[in-house]
Measured scan of single mutants.
Amino acid sequence: AVCQRCQARFSPAERIVNSNGELYHEHCFVCAQCFRPFPEGLFYEFEGRKYCEHDFQML
């Protein structure tokens, strides 16, 4: 399997985020606008991209 964002493979010891069947490295699972991790894992999706609450409100 490969990361949805960076397309790199996962190492066996690595923590992986699964979002609706899409797999991400922990450091790749970030807001599409500000590139920060999601507070408490909370995000909003718009047109296939994931956003933090602040950036989602700015759309």
Rank of each mutant, 00 (worst) to 15 (best):
V2Y: 09
V2T: 12
C3N: 02
C3D: 00
C3F: 00
C3L: 01
Q4V: 06
Q4R: 10
Q4D: 15
Q4E: 08
R5V: 14
R5D: 14
R5G: 15
C6E: 00
C6A: 01
C6T: 00
C6K: 03
Q7C: 07
A8P: 01
A8E: 15
R9W: 11
R9S: 15
R9H: 11
R9Q: 13
R9P: 13
F10W: 03
F10M: 12
F10G: 02
S11E: 13
S11M: 12
S11V: 06
S11N: 09
S11C: 08
P12H: 15
P12S: 12
P12T: 12
P12E: 13
A13S: 08
A13L: 11
E14S: 11
E14Q: 09
E14P: 02
R15H: 08
R15N: 07
I16P: 09
I16D: 05
I16H: 06
I16W: 08
I16V: 07
I16L: 11
I16C: 10
I16T: 14
I16A: 09
V17L: 12
V17F: 11
V17H: 12
N18G: 08
N18H: 05
S19N: 13
S19C: 09
S19T: 10
S19L: 08
S19W: 08
N20C: 11
N20R: 08
N20L: 08
G21D: 05
G21Y: 03
G21Q: 07
E22N: 13
E22S: 09
L23N: 10
L23H: 15
L23E: 07
Y24P: 04
Y24V: 10
Y24N: 03
Y24I: 08
H25L: 02
H25A: 00
H25P: 01
H25K: 00
E26R: 06
H27R: 11
H27G: 05
H27A: 07
C28R: 01
C28I: 01
C28H: 10
V30F: 09
C31F: 00
C31S: 00
A32C: 04
A32I: 09
A32W: 08
Q33D: 04
Q33T: 12
Q33V: 14
Q33N: 13
F35S: 15
F35E: 15
R36G: 10
R36A: 07
R36N: 08
P37N: 05
P37T: 08
P37W: 04
P37M: 07
P37D: 06
P37K: 06
F38Y: 02
F38Q: 02
F38I: 02
F38V: 08
P39D: 13
E40R: 13
E40C: 09
G41I: 01
G41N: 13
G41V: 02
L42Q: 09
L42V: 11
L42R: 12
F43A: 08
F43V: 08
F43E: 03
Y44G: 05
Y44R: 11
E45L: 11
F46Y: 14
F46R: 05
F46S: 06
E47K: 05
E47P: 01
E47D: 10
E47N: 04
E47Y: 03
E47W: 03
E47F: 02
G48V: 01
G48F: 04
R49N: 03
R49D: 03
R49F: 06
K50R: 11
K50V: 10
K50M: 15
K50C: 08
K50Q: 11
K50H: 06
K50T: 11
Y51N: 01
Y51P: 01
Y51V: 12
C52L: 01
C52T: 00
C52G: 01
C52M: 02
E53T: 06
E53V: 04
E53I: 08
E53G: 06
H54P: 13
H54F: 12
H54D: 10
D55L: 00
D55E: 03
D55H: 13
D55Q: 01
F56C: 03
F56Q: 01
F56L: 10
F56T: 09
M58S: 13
M58N: 15
M58Q: 12
L59E: 04
L59I: 14
L59F: 02
L59V: 13
L59G: 15
L59Q: 10
L59N: 02
